[in-house]
Design a binder for these strands. Sequence first.
DNA 1: AGCACGCCGACT
DNA 2: GTCGGCGTGCTC
Length: 725
Amino acid sequence: MIVEVALPVPLRGGFDYLLPEGQPTPTPGCRVRVPFGSRQLSGVVVTIKQDSEQPTAKLRQLSAVLDHQPILSERLLEWLNWASRYYQHPLGDVISTALPARLRKGDAATIQQTCWQLTETGLAQDSQSLKRAPQQQALVERLQSGRCDARTLKQAFSATVIRALEEKGLIETVEDEYVADTDWPQRIHICGQLTPNLEQSLAITAVNNHAQGFQCFLLEGVTGSGKTEVYLQTIAPLLKQGRQILILVPEIGLTPQTVARFEQRFGIEVAVLHSGLTDKERLRVWQQAGLGEVGIIIGTRSAIFTPLANPGMIIVDEEHDGSYKQQDGWRYHARDLAVVRARMEKVPLILGSATPSLETLNNALGSRYQHLSLGKRAGGANAVKHQVLDIKGQALDYGLAKGMQQRIRLHLQQGHQVMLFINRRGFAPALICHQCGHVEECHRCERSFTLHRQLKKLQCHHCGDAKVVPHRCAACGHPDLQPVGMGTEQLEQGIQRIFPDYSAMRIDSDSARGKQKLHGLLEEINQGKSQLLIGTQILAKGHHFPRVSLVVILDVDSALFSADYRAAEHLAQLITQVAGRAGRAQIQGELWLQTHNPGHPLLQDLLNNGYQHFARLALKERQFAALPPYSYQALFRAEAVDGNLAYGFLEQVKACLQPTDITLIGPLPALMEKRQGRYRMQLLLQSDKRTGIQQWLSNMMSNIEKLPLANKVRWSLDMDPMDFT
DNA sequence: AGCACGCCGACT
DNA sequence: GTCGGCGTGCTC
């Protein structure tokens, strides 16, 4: 008997071990301890087989079996196996990321609990002898039918009765396996349900009609259109059947209010998984969910790995949010994993967003997902006015045009707050003519060149072509060529100089490190402590700023001409989200965009026709350029102190390839060429068929690992890359 | 990823 | 003489 074990090491494939004589065979999904080189590791059994490809002499014996029952169900194990193959990431590492830290370390997976049982004297005793103590008699009679856990017994009998019997030596405590408490469905009390409008009703009915099997839904609804109400009403019947609901939310969206809304509606406790939990708390939620003790689990990215005893539905809220993609180690996408998991669990999946990702929208338009729309904005809040400021040829102070400064001053004088956005995501400066707005483009691809200052050249991240930095604009001949977005870096220091009478506050992921800290800062903003708010994406997500009347997005062009082809999509999502958040109630909100290209078709479409229309146009562009979701990508990243090594490694990878139906771009410098003293390079694989990339990679990964430079550089593979920095 | 092995330089 | 620096190679 051979046991194949997945171990948390960055090595592909399982490791085979012999089962010691007399040891009961563990089932797949059980943890085991095994000798590995000079150390002992715990891993998870993936298969039991008759023979091994390894010579038997090389095999070592299993040291111990840690679980009697598998900690991963067959279905979950199958899902993780699929994920390992899809992401080309070692199974042991995949399983290890999916498990709570405590289980990784070898803690007991089962919950122990204290039980009361009759002692030997208690068993021998005739209960009639307790006739004068009817409570005690009843307790003994109860235990005659078997032991009972301390918690339940305490509810039925007083502590005095229990103590008395213990002192008489008739009952004793014993540690026993925990009996799950799964009567939450009976405790459900629906409270505060709203009457759905027509669109909500249609959405609820559509989901209910498919609630018993797999079906993917895109619930597209603007801010305030009542997506949450649709979630609440579609999960109600499932919860009553005792089926569990797993809800994923973006990192920033997991607030006490979100949780409270679900708890209030159903009157049951909601289990929450977020980064603030201790390992012990996290394990507890994992166990409770796996035992079926909780009906609703809300969590961020990694909550997708929560086991469910009786799954009913998965919801991914704000599905376009970038925080669903893990950005180091195993670079999984929780939304994509959710789709596969829902299919395997045979449950419906709702992807909700006001600004769906183009990937999801494409699936909905292609009828792979059912498309549900909520258009009406409840409450009729004032629409935010969108306006564009052409900054061609204008003098800029720290990235702000003079006219914009006046506008800002006006709003400040009225006692309102002003929010300034710097969009640094996927930042890759293009070279723009400040006089005419012309952007240097690659002639082959009709896409903007990216300026790499260190290499002193322009590089096309679409085809890999490069050229020297020109000194004059190719369109108007003017020498005023500038990297897009230049100057905005100094905005934080400069803004105080332009508006010395007002206080400015910067909010980004650094200044808001830690959950509490962000909430504290937001509190301060809404109290009006600062009038000028400078921030990035983080300000746009899920917060309301009633005192803000003017929002300015400074460097729209850096998104329109980024080498990251998703930058325009993200800008559109940002603009739409911001518009939904600022200037509520009495204050008329204004949104201003600074650009050299007011006529840019994507920008115009977004402003005139809204996100839904923009998204469809952007999809057409992607299709035309054969970019995702009309093609599939995988990205090799390599970094090293010596940039030539990183480049050399990717060249070797490239040489492994017999280009058939895969296009290779690179090796190219990453959009952020250097980080922490290391040069970073990338090699992009692209194909119009997913299987092409899959097949080539599964054949080649072991060869790539053996390349001479493979252990000289830090490298990784990113399936469906979202970020090219 | 760890961890051992191994081969060179500066210390009680 | 030894302690320890981190390059190389292996782990069923």
